[in-house]
């Protein structure tokens, strides 16, 4: 906590009160948000995804909406629909739940690919287009999507190209023993009306400053080494795309900013490496786990970090 920049401390402290013992996860969520990306949580239900989302949104004073994805959901259920108003005798656009600042897209892999791609396109473009008219999404716009592990029945796995649109992906995992004990004691009560710790202007300023974090030649060398390793080593099915590379750089910058630096270091990248790469890479042989990805890549760049 000491190495966090002061402006982030209240935010992280406040969320930590709701989600006990998950400081690292909260930091990564904050970093993803300020990097301007979207987050994919891969978890079994009931480990605090919603808690994290709600706490995060209310602490920043963001407009929050939640969509529970189901198999029969249509794109219009998310982005909205044009309906004919008989009184006014014209089509009127009824905004869907996506028109919000913080969208919790629950169990995204339960819906049909058509619906999934509607959401992901909106995430990418920052706007929704219906019948030739574009409706911009509010700013900031942050999607926290969750998905069940693939093995579960009745799910539609997100294709690789769609996964690429999420900046980061990780799982919250079970709470540790102490935290769980506190939860079991019932000591934790969710306050609905939380103190807003950051204004919209502050948020935008920080987002801008993240973009300005310097990547030195040394750092760029390391980044490029990682990227070319994923592409050329032959152990991955496919390497990082340029968007993936940009994601790695953006998250590295954001992590550096979170720690109060205006330049990024190798440790910044190492901290978020697995989260950025996990949903983008898969090994040709054997199981793909965040740890294995981290180990393989760091072993390769060991001399440079």
């Amino acid at each position: 906590m000491q190495d966090i920049a002061n402006e982030f401390k209240p935010l992280i402290e406040q969320i930590s009160k709701d989600l006990k013992g998950k400081e690292e996860i909260i930091k990564k969520t904050v970093a993803t948000f300020f990097a301007g990306g979207h987050l994919l949580l891969e978890d079994i239900p009931g480990v605090g995804k919603t808690t994290l989302a709600k706490s995060f949104a209310s602490s920043l004073g963001l407009e929050f909406s939640r969509v529970q994805f189901t198999a029969d959901m249509l794109p219009s259920d998310i982005i909205g629909v044009n309906y004919f108003d008989v009184n006014e005798a014209k089509f009127i656009f009824k905004k869907g739940p996506i028109f919000t600042q913080f969208l919790l897209a629950d169990e995204i892999n339960r819906s049909m690919p058509k619906t999934q791609s509607a959401l992901l396109e909106a995430m990418e473009e920052g706007k929704v287009t219906i019948d030739g008219i574009s409706y911009p999404l509010p700013k900031p716009f942050f999607v926290m999507a969750t998905q069940n592990p693939y093995e579960e029945k009745g799910t539609f796995a997100l294709p690789h190209s769609q996964l690429d649109r999420f900046l980061c992906s990780f799982s919250i995992g079970y709470p540790n023993r102490e935290s769980e004990r506190e939860i079991l004691k019932g000591l934790i009560e969710e306050k609905e009306n939380k103190k807003v710790v950051m204004s919209l202007e502050q948020i935008e300023d920080i987002m801008q400053s993240v973009k300005e974090v310097k990547l030195s030649d040394s750092m760029l060398d390391i980044l490029q080494e990682v990227i070319s390793f994923t592409r050329e080593s032959g152990i991955f099915r496919y390497g990082l795309s340029t968007r993936g590379a940009l994601a790695l750089a953006a998250m590295t910058r954001s992590w550096a900013r979170l720690h109060g630096r205006d330049y990024a270091i190798a440790d910044d990248m190492l901290s978020i490496l697995a989260d950025v790469c996990y949903h983008r890479l898969s090994f040709l042989e054997g199981e793909t786990t965040p740890k294995r990805i981290y180990d393989e890549i760091t072993s390769h760049i060991s001399l440079q970090i």
Binding site: A266, D267, L270, D295, S299, S302, I305
Partner: peptide
Amino acid sequence: VKGEQESISA
């Protein structure tokens, strides 16, 4: 000794 997964700073 610097571990394989360890950065110099670490």
